[in-house]
Design a protein around this nucleic acid. Structure first.
Lengths: 133, 133
DNA sequence: CCGCATCCGGGATGATACTG
DNA sequence: CAGTATCATCCCGGATGCGG
């Protein structure tokens, strides 16, 4: 996938512009741009997890940001939140069908990143050499 | 592609965490999260463009943001910048091979967004109804 | 035409403390 | 355990003006 063959003047939708609002790409891009979204989805792709488990797996996340991230993913319908009214309480998060589809799309991104990161980093180093020294 | 079938506990790389820095996903996510990246790449996917042409096609972009966006894409090796030393100067931008691959990956995102935006918007409306009254 | 420099506001993120 | 509340901070992005 993501072969290096010709692109043949393929026209992308300039989503986000007045004429193309309905593509909904910004919805996804904004969510992807947030710092903890991908890692959270990645963790939940391994199966349902409790709040504390997710927190431990996301090194450096604060409770505030984790809660915000989970709320937004829940709002998008990507994950479900199940509360066990025990004491102490237990809250379990799990990907929905939509969330699993989202997770699979993220996998494409990860694959693409992995196979291009070296090229990109080299290009950046070249650029930086030519534009400072 | 992006079928709704089972996800079978697929494990995503939690890129960005200490143990997984090398996946390079943040490189891409940060770039995608920026406001004008996708539209710029989309415009250039239609062929080489001059600065002024890109500016006109990106409704609402400021010169500052367009220049920043182009610089960062150039730094990543996604586009080339060719200066014609005429008067007034003429600068042409074009996708590189790497940039065309990037553009194709973006197309996947666009396709996914388009086919899920309704579901997502509905989920958001449901959530908002249940969480405000 | 193609930029760069400067100032500034707002949203995303982080730190810390507190609660049922 | 699973959050909420408050304050501090950083950076993206917009507005504006100048320069080659």
């Amino acid at each position: 996938m993501f072969a290096e063959d010709d692109v043949s003047e393929e026209i992308l939708e300039p989503c986000g512009m007045p004429d193309h609002e309905d593509c909904g790409l910004r919805l996804i891009l904004d969510r992807l741009g947030e710092k903890w979204t991908v890692m959270t989805v990645a963790e939940l792709a391994g199966g349902p997890r409790r709040y504390r488990e997710i927190e431990r797996s996301l090194t450096g996340v604060t409770q505030r940001m984790l809660t915000l991230t989970l709320r937004r993913l829940e709002r998008d319908g990507f994950l479900s939140r199940t509360v066990e009214p025990t004491n102490p309480p237990s809250v379990t998060y799990a990907l929905t069908a939509s969330g699993q589809s989202f997770a699979r799309m993220v996998t494409h991104l990860v694959d693409w990143s992995r196979s291009h990161k070296d090229t990109i980093r080299l290009a950046q180093q070249d650029f930086d050499r030519h534009h400072v020294g």
